[in-house]
Computed example of a mutant assay.
Amino acid sequence: MSTDGTFTYNGGKVEPGERQNLRYGISETYLGDPVRIPVTVINGERSGPTVFLSAAAHGDELNGIEVVREVAHEWDLADLAGTLVCLPVMNVPGFLAQQRYLPIYDRDLNRSFPGREDSTSAKRMAARIFDNFVAPCDFGIDFHTSTRGRTNMLHVRADMSDEAVERLARAFGSNVIIDSEGSDGILRTEATRVGIPTVTVEMGEAHRFQRGLIDDALDGVESVFAEYELLEASAVRWPGWRTVIDDANEKTWIRADAGGIVDMHHERGSLVREGERICTLTNPFKDDNVAVEAPFTGLLVGVLENPVVYPGNPLCHLVELEPDVRRVVEREQAAGGT
């Protein structure tokens, strides 16, 4: 951002009080045609922080696209204090092919940040996104879903050792925060490293819009906007209960020890008790059933949706809850809550 509040990027600028929808070139096809990503920049008349909302770094992860679009184009942002940068589809080639990775050499855009202009295709794309639309920001939220065949309950992933990231993660108001620094090349990791606190929001599954999760995520964005005073009419959200999963909590990906067909007995977000059967693996004749039991009492943050596995395939993501949080979740689920 310039000192007069103008948002600038390579090729243009957005003055205070202006909105701009653009298709920004980040690469070229085999035919030399431009590969453009949609970007909306809303620069408020009042001063305030600059925030980015991004989605579809993986091209088949669609829930976040609708979150970012609705904030940009359906919310009343007339009184916005600050600047909002909306990147609903970062991985346009993957989105067009409806696949997770860039079709170009099967690269992962979300392992390519902050990028490099003289490197691979993925890193060149990442650099143009990062340098123009992430680097000018004060903080950001990057939306994801689980990979194909699995589903996640809505939760935040954040490096809670960073105070600015912790503030952002808690402001989003999710029940679950998974504390991790994140791998090299991930957008939230690389943005945070250069002083732009960023969190990942995981929600649902690939290849679809899930309205309930989208609405919950929109509530989270509104809560963040309230925390940082971007919108006066909103309020910071309290989710009713919250757990931060860190090294003090048991957590595990439970994997199949046999190939077969999976009968999953619990949904994402369910509390399961130690020794309780989470799912059953069977063969096509149903004459060889293998029970998969919970190794400890915990919450199913993610579960398998595609009911077929090879040995070693993940079945579910189980995390331990603190005793007081567990009691709240037990009461909530006993009363029919989610």
Results as ranks from 00 to 15, higher is better:
residue 306 N to G: 02
residue 270 S to E: 15
residue 113 F to M: 02
residue 258 A to W: 12
residue 86 C to K: 01
residue 330 E to F: 02
residue 187 L to F: 08
residue 208 R to N: 05
residue 236 V to A: 03
residue 295 P to M: 08
residue 176 V to G: 10
residue 145 T to V: 09
residue 107 R to C: 08
residue 252 T to Y: 01
residue 210 Q to D: 12
residue 252 T to C: 08
residue 31 L to R: 07
residue 260 G to K: 02
residue 305 E to C: 04
residue 320 E to R: 06
residue 134 V to P: 03
residue 205 E to D: 02
residue 116 R to A: 15
residue 165 V to S: 06
residue 295 P to K: 10
residue 299 L to H: 14
residue 179 D to L: 08
residue 280 T to F: 08
residue 337 G to P: 01
residue 257 D to T: 14
residue 28 E to P: 00
residue 206 A to W: 03
residue 187 L to S: 12
residue 113 F to A: 07
residue 65 I to M: 03
residue 44 G to E: 06
residue 183 S to Q: 14
residue 205 E to C: 10
residue 124 R to H: 04
residue 67 V to R: 03
residue 329 V to Y: 05
residue 29 T to Q: 09
residue 107 R to N: 05
residue 29 T to C: 06
residue 38 P to W: 07
residue 232 E to N: 07
residue 161 S to K: 14
residue 4 D to H: 02
residue 171 A to C: 12
residue 140 G to C: 12
residue 329 V to A: 04
residue 178 I to P: 01
residue 129 I to P: 03
residue 97 A to W: 08
residue 44 G to I: 10
residue 237 R to V: 01
residue 100 R to N: 11
residue 259 G to T: 12
residue 276 E to Q: 15
residue 300 L to G: 09
residue 103 P to D: 07
residue 44 G to T: 08
residue 260 G to W: 04
residue 289 N to D: 13
residue 229 E to P: 00
residue 37 I to N: 02
residue 337 G to D: 13
residue 36 R to A: 10
residue 269 G to Q: 07
residue 146 S to C: 13
residue 124 R to Y: 09
residue 87 L to M: 12
residue 213 L to E: 11
residue 130 F to Y: 15
residue 41 V to C: 05
residue 129 I to R: 04
residue 141 I to K: 09
residue 290 V to A: 10
residue 270 S to M: 13
